[in-house]
Write a protein that binds this DNA or RNA. Structure first.
Lengths: 125, 125
DNA sequence: TCATCTGTTATATTTAGATTATAACACTTT
DNA sequence: AAAGTGTTATAATCTAAATATAACAGATGA
């Protein structure tokens, strides 16, 4: 699993960890039942406090992505990813609708919006 | 002018004020040359420090929406269409960035997002 | 000129969230 | 028992946002 922490992202560390792990789950790199690195080992690896890793894991557990058992470790929880993706798609759709409204109201041509879209989505090299 | 501050928005107060005033300018509720409430009166009204209001006004001046004159007050700057378009583009950009984050996180391919985009923008026929 | 608006500046403090360090504790496995 | 897991409590640091306070400066009208 590839967890990268940057100070330039603006996001707090615990949230960056959260996102990395969610991403790994969505991409199926982490599957149902897989064990996550222990809070201490991941903390050592990233050279941060184990409390920060714990916080990330706590959030992930709250939102149902993982299950933690004292003395054993943290495991990827069963989840209906298709259902979640469906929700995420709806969320994306509502944002696009907002964009559509703004562009219509302010006379911003579709092409210009498309340029922005390409720019932001291409930077993912 | 309706400036509402909430602690639940996550946005700092000075930014909420900024946004409210931008919105009032966009909706023409505040017109070119209109005087804004004085930093102290708005601070009293909102029960916050005048320094926080000043910060909001400073930001608005930096981005060209208002003009402040010592001893007189702050006034809505002459309407600048480029500025408005620039602002709307920024808004659109921030939505696209949100979309990018969601799609990256939940492993939704760019193409799928693009399909949605096309669908919503084509229906304008 | 004076009072009273307006904005400006400087200093110190408070607050909240994120993060850390440390130590002690509890459960699981071998 | 040892060594791995997670848990909890406490105190400290750091940063951005926000505050309190006081003093200063320009504009305006009585």
């Amino acid at each position: 699993m590839n967890i990268i922490i940057t100070n330039s992202s603006g996001l707090p560390i615990f949230e960056q960890i959260e996102n990395s792990i969610k991403q790994a789950i969505f991409s199926n790199e982490l599957k149902e039942g897989d064990m996550l690195p222990s809070v201490r080992s991941l903390a050592n690896e990233l050279k941060i406090s184990f409390l920060t890793v714990k916080r990330a894991y706590d959030e992930l557990e709250k939102s149902g992505f993982i299950k933690t058992i004292q003395g054993k470790g943290s495991y990827v929880a069963p989840k209906n990813l298709d259902l979640i993706k469906e929700e995420k798609l709806k969320e994306i759709q509502s944002y696009i609708e907002k964009i559509y409204e703004i562009s219509k109201l302010s006379n911003i041509p579709k092409e210009e919006v498309n340029e922005l879209f390409k720019m932001i989505f291409e930077e993912e090299l």
